[in-house]
Write a protein that binds this DNA or RNA. Structure first.
Lengths: 349, 349
DNA sequence: ATCCAATTGGACGTATTCTGTCCCGGATGA
DNA sequence: TCATCCGGGACAGAATACGTCCAATTGGAT
């Protein structure tokens, strides 16, 4: 069953939406014993005309009937709603999860794709694809989009597709090089994104582990300076979220700093900043580019991360409170759900 | 699973079609290691443009990929096809059944709805609805449509819906009254159909069990005569199929005739005629209206009957060979399948 | 009994999408 | 090297969806 739904999700996602829409119409009509077209449209926040089209269809199927007093559900319709209920709750299981997370962390939108990136490689690609759709949807002409590195963002870059080339959009790396492998660097990802979408890109070449002197002199370079200014004005920021210790090791952080961070309870990493459980910044990479303050000005801050192992890290970054949209997978979302419930219990007890 | 599919059918009838279409595209691409758009469209007998729309969708879903050499399936696509295969074969079970029956009885079209009218009342309504769609689809302005009586035709009449009123269509009973209960008489059904579709209707009032004298004098009546002429020119005929003995009893046939009929192996009834296993007419009701010969002139002869108990009767009537379209249910279709296989075995052995 | 408010179904122009058809530059394989 | 077949762009016309308004009807409250 579960499998069947997932396959359908993949092959006919739009029809499942249609199905869900008709289902909610039916069940709404069932709840209200008799209801008029306009009232129903308002209740479901649809326009009158579209609701009417659906209602006509449902009538033709013998699931609804209408008279001068309004519409009511037929016996067949009632039976259909009742037998469909368990399927729909499973189908909409993810959207309930989305709602829960969205409301708890005060996000604008949460998208949960089925699966667990820790277990299936395919899920990470799916995560990237979903994030790509969110990004495309948010874009306007003239936008500057800052992106970070990481395997998840790489999946986004590799799977993104557009209808028409994105004229006037500029992809930039959010911050300077973090010494990861080439494929997962922000520079690479910005350029891949630009190439796949017909947009422009600009890169930021900054070596790692700069001394304070070197940093200062680099910032005096006009082209670096200007590029940083462009980056900091990004209207859209897409970033991954990592486990603090894993990222620190990958970036060959020196042992002393690492020990200090561990002592402070470092949990998550995003945009080169390290966060503890409460979402407080306890360390930052010494490089140039987007700063956390800049996120306030950005209109779309999109976090993309999945895999049940990243649940805590995601929660930590979300608590910092500058993200607008979270794209994640079911594995991580279930962890988030557990964290939320636990927290609420403590608050109650 | 089965239940889920049926519910989906009800709520989004085109869902499975679209899904099947995309599935065959994917599997076709998988078979041909690499194939071009035009070649693929030809192989699936689709137009280039529609195929392209679907292919673009499948690309966006990451199931197909395209390069200058043609399209090929991705790993994700391959996995999808493989896991979907068992479902699709079950799903396409009905269309295979349809094909089998259609080819064996040389029909133009066969439609099989899921379920068994003997077991679920809902299936009979579904049967009626499907038949209604076939009827609507066949209609043109100025058509005369002859219908018979029976519970199945009653279900058709009660469930039919139209987008616009059918101007210029005329519904008539196929033959004179057969002494069934009012609701299931051809006259009632013709008038219900007309009212529900905005078409016109005319009735034929002929008492049952006429003596030869009475019959002759009735036929001298100008209005009866004219009405019979209208009926016999019907371009479309929709009829049910019954079990011979059940119908004989319901129509209070006298015992002697019944015994004679039984002796001759009466199996099926349609349009007031009784057929044996081979489709030969062995008895006819003494009433006026459509004759079997008239079916040749009719352009659409649509048989509607379901329930596994009617399998043999349906086969018998189909063997008479004047039907164009059969609308039935899975229960009856499975019986037909068994009959066909049995027959082929005998032909082989 | 009467009136009001709300209903459905019809109508219609516009916006949007779909689809048949053709073309082009380019990669591929003979 | 060349012919062939590919994907993708383009576009006009058809078909469909949609917003909007209106009229007739009716159920229910006053």
């Amino acid at each position: 069953m579960r499998e069947w739904i997932e396959l359908q999700q993949r092959l006919v996602p739009d029809l499942l939406e249609v199905m869900a829409k008709r289902y909610v119409i039916l069940s709404q009509v069932m709840k209200s014993e008799s209801i008029g077209r306009r009232a129903l449209a308002a209740a479901l926040s649809m326009t009158e005309r579209t609701l009417r089209a659906e209602a006509d269809f449902l009538k033709a199927q013998g699931l609804l009937e209408a008279n001068a007093a309004g519409m009511r559900i037929t016996d067949a319709g009632r039976r259909l709603v009742e037998s469909l209920a368990p399927f729909m709750s499973e189908l909409s299981g993810l959207s309930e999860l989305e709602r829960l997370i969205r409301d708890h962390f005060r996000l604008r939108e949460v998208i949960v794709v089925p699966g667990d990136a820790d277990e299936a490689r395919e899920t990470k690609r799916e995560l990237g694809r979903a994030a790509g759709r969110v990004l495309i949807r948010s874009l306007q002409g003239g936008d500057v989009v800052a992106v970070t590195g990481g395997t998840t963002l790489a999946a986004l870059a590799e799977t993104i597709t557009v209808d028409q080339p994105l004229k006037g959009v500029l992809f930039v790396p959010a911050r300077g090089g973090f010494g990861e492998s080439m494929d997962y660097q922000a520079n690479t990802i910005a350029s891949t994104l630009a190439k796949r979408t017909g947009a422009a890109y600009r890169l930021l070449h900054v070596p790692d582990h700069l001394s304070e002197d070197a940093y200062q002199s680099l910032m005096l370079e006009p082209n670096v300076r200007e590029m940083v200014e462009v980056i900091r004005k990004s209207r859209i920021v897409v970033h991954g979220i990592g486990d603090a210790m894993v990222m620190a090791r990958r970036r060959k952080m020196d042992t002393r700093t690492m020990d200090a961070m561990r002592a402070e309870g470092a949990l998550a990493e995003a945009l080169g900043y390290y966060f503890d459980k409460s979402g407080t910044v306890i360390h930052r990479m010494s490089t140039v580019g987007l700063r956390l303050d800049d996120l306030e000005k950005a209109e779309h801050v999109i976090a993309v991360a999945g895999g049940s192992s990243k649940g805590e890290a995601i929660a930590a970054v979300l608590r910092y409170g500058q993200d607008d949209v979270l794209v994640t997978d079911e594995g991580a979302a279930r962890r988030l759900e557990a964290i939320i419930r636990q927290e609420r219990q403590q608050a109650d007890g």
